[in-house]
Amino acid sequence: MSEPIIRVSALNKTYEGGFQALKQIDLDIQRGEIFALLGPNGAGKTTLISVICGLVNATDGQVVVDGFDNQVDYREARSRIGLVPQELTNEAFETVWNTVNFSRGLFGKPPDPGHIERVLKSLTLWDKRNNRLITLSGGMKRRVLIAKALSHEPRILFLDEPTAGVDVGLRREMWDVVRQLRESGVTIILTTHYIEEAEEMADRIGVINNGEIVLVEDKAALMRKLGSKQLALHLHEPLDSVPPALAAYDLQLAANGSELIYTYDASRAGGAEGQESSTISALLADVEAAGLVFKDLHTRQSSLEDIFVDLVKER
């Protein structure tokens, strides 16, 4: 594996009031990936991003961006990063064109109207280029923030809650934009409250809680490892209790006894050995043998949200 594009080592942040927002964080972000950082409110997501981008001073520890220490070689490190903040912050009376060009200049790049035009077009902002920011909708303002972050052609893009307050249609458009960026080689780190967003887009997931990284895992592996599947049998007649003949399956009754639930490990379902498929076949045979009749059945796999809630609850 190549060198990570961001390496965070033994990072701590304690605010003046004594609140420790980050505790001994170690984290590698791989080149070209979409990394989703999940965590409840106040977990430390924004503080971590802020330290990496230079907005907040770390108490101790080190952040290396593409081989450059973000304190010692701050010019090199920061020039590689684009940041889209959580809040819709911008100069209300400036035009879209001016504010995006300002960002490019601020990051030390010579004017390049062609690049700015491409960025604005990719974010469907080109028609609004002469509009003042105060006249734009919330979704448009968020796109402007993305355009500003992309104006200096960063290799790494931080998206802090990029689709907060954005309607479903626009959210999906933004996901497409993010995917296109990844395809062009940009590494993307996003924090989100929409687990669906992380599930849809991320290659890897990191979970932060109480200032500590709880886990970092490949999304698919995480869902295989920590996810579970349920088989629900909708019975013709409701039951008072699970028949003793089915005790070995550790079944649960739901919906006032009219549903029989079997929970199993998702990682074993459909596995090479087919352990779970044979167990399910045996269960169905035993259900029939016990004289139970079911009118329907369905399976459900736990979502990333379920996994996240379980992980945070455990700690």
């Binding site: 907005l55 920061r78 100069e91 209300a92």
Partner: peptide
């Protein structure tokens, strides 16, 4: 003061400038 007030100071602080 205005960038501090509006929050857009984030851009100034994250830019590669001295």
């Amino acid at each position: 003061f205005f960038p501090k007030f509006s929050g857009s100071v984030y851009e100034l602080l994250s830019a590669p400038i001295s």
